[in-house]
Write a protein that binds this DNA or RNA. Sequence first.
DNA 1: TGCAAGTTTTTTATCGATATTTTTTGTAAA
DNA 2: TTTACAAAAAATATCGATAAAAAACTTGCA
Lengths: 234, 234
Amino acid sequence: MARTYNDQTEQNGAKTLSDQAYLQLRSDIIHGELLPDEKLRIEHLRGEYGVGASPLREALSRLTADGFVTAEGQRGFRVAPMSEEDLADITRMRILLEKQALSQSIEHGDDAWESRIVATFYQLEKVEESEARDPAEWEIRNHDFHEALIAGCTSKWLRRFYGILYDQHKRYRNIALSTEIPRDLHQEHEELRNAALARDTKRACDAIEQHIMRTAEITLKVLREETRREQEIA
Amino acid sequence: MARTYNDQTEQNGAKTLSDQAYLQLRSDIIHGELLPDEKLRIEHLRGEYGVGASPLREALSRLTADGFVTAEGQRGFRVAPMSEEDLADITRMRILLEKQALSQSIEHGDDAWESRIVATFYQLEKVEESEARDPAEWEIRNHDFHEALIAGCTSKWLRRFYGILYDQHKRYRNIALSTEIPRDLHQEHEELRNAALARDTKRACDAIEQHIMRTAEITLKVLREETRREQEIA
DNA sequence: TGCAAGTTTTTTATCGATATTTTTTGTAAA
DNA sequence: TTTACAAAAAATATCGATAAAAAACTTGCA
């Protein structure tokens, strides 16, 4: 009986309360529910997330190692800050790692790898072309497509670091999501797909670099506007 | 009074018991005191490290995010396994990141950066030439030299990832430390120093790649021997 | 008013206790 | 013997309580 209750309440692959708290906090930070520099008071979070102090502290410890949260001595936890420099840093690193992952992927990818790229691209295409663009839907499809591209990469560490950077970047992208995406994303994705399927490493790397750079530029622009607006208020 | 006691017992910058446990566990894993795949029982560790369950669990959570510990759903923690594939993976990634960090460093490094390279190289040289090579001393000097080389790199994320990989690699290097280092490390380090000071990015990157590759090759050889020996026993 | 020392309140970090889950051990049937 | 099952033991994950630290708030004095 208790098992049934647990099965219903646990989300994703969260087997412990600590995992649940970790995933929820992570998601809330990425999606801007928890704002940069915001103080994360254990007592407050307890009520918010419905778990005790121990699992919360464990979750926050992990998020600290991931760079989503900062922890200072006896002064508790905060949501990690955001800055233009950090975005530039993440962008540069993401380009480096995603190019590497893509190269390895093109080298080792088999038929299943190709199929997955075709399939995820098609799904992404559908969302991009639809009138009512659901940002959440697009986010998932976009992630699936990028994952498919680097699925042939066998490096555990490259995947780990890339995953962290993707989500870090996603946090920046999310705060800039309000503005409509003006550029022709579809064309960029198509070029990426074709280059990968043609096993043209150089072309694919150039495409991914351009793609990440443009996304980052737009995000940076929105971030600057928001920063300016905040300063005007203060 | 209590403060004085704390000041004496706390090591490094560890402001909390959790930090202490984190640093000690990390060090013990890197230095092989805790063996790969070894079960980390909270109750046992409590006695060993003299802290309660909560700080230990927090420390283990962080180490999990760092990749030094694995955690499985209601089944506790283990020291992360070691394998030839993992070593190869770490090596490849380290080359990628250290080359990048070195490039940025050569580009942005100032006079202080140059001075630090010269100084740390000199200290490393001293240890390498001395008759009684203290591995612990060498380890520190080697780390200082490599840190100095990439000190000009401004990327927070690059430093973070590089730091993790350096320590992961160090774990592999430590288990292979018993064997005497036969190659001419000094020459490799000198080439590295000269190339960096000459601001020759290409040459420095080649040097660092060779350097890391050779270290990894020797480590791999010892790791293979140990694996074989273990299998013979079993 | 401005500042500084002392006091209260809040918050954090940690411990001990408990319920739940996993592993081990023991026992009987195939 | 081996296998299957049940009971016991061990270990984990979690909670509530407490001690220690930091922040906020007085209050006294120049």
